[in-house]
Write a protein that binds this DNA or RNA. Sequence first.
RNA 1: GCCCCCAUCGUCUAGCGGUUAGGACGCUGCCCUUUCAAGGCAGAGAUCAAGGGUUCGAAUCCCUUUGGGGGCGCCA
Length: 484
Amino acid sequence: MNRVRFAPSPTGHLHIGGARTALFNYLFAKKYGGTFILRIEDTDELRSTGESVKSIFESMKWLGLNWDEGAMPDGSEKGPFGPYVQSAREAAGVYKKYSEELLKSGKAYECYCTPAELDEMRKKAQLEKRPPKYEGLCRNLTAARKKEFEAQGRKPVIRFRMPDDGVTAWNDLIHKDVKFENKLLYDFIMIKASGYPTYNFACVIDDHLMEITHVIRGDDHISNTPLQINLYTALGWKIPELAHLSMILGPDGTRLSKRHGATSVGEYRNQGYLPQTMRNYLALLGWSTVDSQQIFKEGELEEKFDLKGCQKSPAIFDPVKLNWMNGEYIRGYSKEALLELALPYIKEAGLPVEKGRAPLADIVALEQEKYKLLSEIPGLIKFFFTEVEYDPKAVEKTLKTPDAGKILEGVKGAYASLNVFKEAEIEAATRAFAKAGGFKAGAVFHPVRVAVSGRTEGPTLFRMIEYLGREESLKRLAHAATLI
RNA sequence: GCCCCCAUCGUCUAGCGGUUAGGACGCUGCCCUUUCAAGGCAGAGAUCAAGGGUUCGAAUCCCUUUGGGGGCGCCA
């Protein structure tokens, strides 16, 4: 039985890269009937916040990445391997047990160097063009020397004693063979002076204790991996399978960051992207099927996902393709379902929708094939409910013409005498007027469109007029005539 | 500076020794059409980063170079 985990550190919102890692772990678990675990890595005492935890939960839920085990949004825990929050595990003495074991066996040691001293050493190493790694100054401290340091008020950290020679290698599920020379590795800190574990330590302990079988994470962790492997070995533990996903980069080829625009899942949600879009698009960043399938129906990703289809090279996040995909998903909805999705945005925009004469769902659906983002819906249907804002260019082009006045007047008359004010009748009347007046159909349609909507582009004209209602349409035709 | 990873159309990618190098987004044109979209069709776009090998044959295997990315924290 496969067990995988997503282990975010709650120092901010769930961002695109994290979401992709979570998604791949989730899909891997679903594909092979495994268990997907959520573990909170809040060992950064300074930056971790409860707010972030909440926000990450929300984004995960929105994306539909439900976990089988782990910390739950209501503060409870699910699963037999808890606690699933590292600060709680620390409090329970989980990490101390193993750090002491390693201390006792000599595979770890106490280091009394201060951050300032370490900084100094690093700078010096840089200057002398040596690798800026910790040189193991405190590796063989005598008891007397330790006492001296203690007397100075120094608090020790616990470092892992890295092998001096040999090679650490593994067979990565995505990158194949990766190897590092041990002499280039450094004695990383397992336990900070505060008593808290560091990432490299806590991660290994927890992955082992939680019986994680596959570690799937970003390849920014590749250089941490040999450190962790040595720790597994020192503890005599089995090393899980390792898979390192390629990074997601911004359009300029550098690491995705704030200056590329939205980076958090929440921001995409607010802009009106659908969770299916995000899942589908993110899945395709660094993964593909042999036939390059683009759109995946519900459940299909879970079925088709495979680590074998994962890319080694980094992928550039392309908002244009994201938008296309979101449009695809929006077009797939029934008008009722689309209305449900659009409602929050319509409310947010404060449109007085009660003034509409046609059902709101019909009005929203009128331009369904045009929407790329839910957030752009209010702007496109606004003219149904509020006073028309005439686009000066549209007015110039269609209303400031010799015949416009005649046309608006004539159409108005035709509409006023209509018995049934429905799309088909409106169209028939409009065409009849055009024919009688010797106008080309388009020559009539265009000014009418601008007169009732203020724009040259919009929904199919006669249905739009029907939804607007006779009274409102006549009013707008009259008003438009004054603009000529 | 040191270490590691990566390299196919602008972008996401298929390919895994013999292909007219395939698909998707975007782009261009045509069709449909009252507009914009959507849809349909057609097209442009990749000397497979470069240079060496190996081989009858290389995008596919090996080496070097170049370029890009990541790491080198008492962050994760």
